[in-house]
Write a protein that binds this DNA or RNA. Structure first.
Lengths: 189, 189
DNA sequence: TACATTTGCCTAGGACGCCTAGGTAATTTA
DNA sequence: TAAATTACCTAGGCGTCCTAGGCAAATGTA
């Protein structure tokens, strides 16, 4: 009996690809087994269960996304950093819709704390350093940016922007302009 | 054989309640049947299939949400309207997490066009009338607001704001202040 | 090279959710 | 009161998840 050479890592990677192809919610243990030409029971030596598989894909996506964002930030500051970071985020969502969806999976608090999710908020804070906001304004701004980026991508992906001639691309650019302006003139409490 | 008196409407309403209790993704035909003390096959005279059931719950949630937002907007303008609208949105998500999740379901374009989703964007535009933005700025601002509100609620629900002492409540208030300031001083292209 | 150990993948099978077909009894309508 | 409708049923097929236990391929060791 020829062995395919499965292991946890390969399963996670293949699961991520599958997610991009058919959607994260359609990533199942059996679909993944089918892709490897293997019985589904065979996967349970490598992943604990379906939830475990999905969590691993989510963590992979968070890592990849953080890596991209970090690369985008390197050597930039101010609006330049803001734009590069935001685009890294949005581009990843476009290129890897399934992985992006995976990154939104609700992780249990412990897993989340050990994940690349922390790098994400650290990087957002790094961008804001250029705008010199004092606490708690910086925290509020972190949340505003996170919300807006995530929300925009979510609405865009669900087709919410298709009813007007204005392209999602153009609005995005202008919204980044607007956020930059807002951060430079953050209103006093 | 005693009849329970099922019909599509009651199933949808019960499905919405179930969603709030156990999460929208755990709303299944069999769980709903169990709740009525009925065999799952019995539900298929009232809903076409599982997807149909979920779509109906989503449409119900969109209606409810639009009704609340409309009530919040009545008689208000400017920042007052912005705040009331945003809070209606967020409060609904807190009170009805399952329904709110349902409202995010990807509807097929035709269903979406016939849904209350259109009312939502119309109302957002109504708020912006107080800020007198010309097109395409108004469209961009509609997208910014939609993204931010949705994104904030999503991040808040997934526990993304629990790592700092700053409360989600306080950041929300300040973000609304900031958005108001931004809309009043929308940067020129 | 021979044997022992590990491990990758298997079969068998149970639980549960989705859904169809066809039936019977309760309700409504004529 | 008979006919038509409808609410719910049983039976059963299929797919996904997951466990238990087995065999054979790969790997380590003498």
């Amino acid at each position: 009996m020829a062995r395919v050479g499965l292991n946890t890592e390969r399963l996670t990677a293949a699961g991520a690809e599958l997610a991009d192809e058919v959607g994260f919610d359609k990533v199942t243990v059996s679909a993944l087994a089918r892709r490897f030409g293997v019985k589904d029971a065979s996967l349970y030596s490598h992943v604990k269960n379906s939830q475990d598989l999905k969590t691993r894909i989510a963590l992979l996506a968070l890592e990849e996304l953080a890596d991209r964002a970090a690369a985008a930030l390197a050597g930039r500051a101010g609006k330049d950093a803001l734009t590069a970071f935001a685009n890294a985020y949005r581009d990843y969502a476009h290129e890897h819709p399934g992985r992006y969806a995976a990154a939104q999976l609700d992780l249990d608090p412990e897993t989340a704390r050990a994940s690349a999710a922390v790098r994400h908020s650290q990087m957002t804070r790094a961008i804001l350093r250029g705008y010199r906001l004092a606490e708690p304004d910086e925290t509020d701004a972190v949340r505003l940016l996170g919300s807006t980026f995530h929300g925009y991508v979510a609405l865009e992906r669900s087709g919410g922007f298709q009813h007007t001639p204005r392209t999602a691309e153009d609005s995005w650019t202008r919204i980044l302009d607007a956020l930059d302006a807002l951060l430079r003139a953050w209103p006093a409490a």
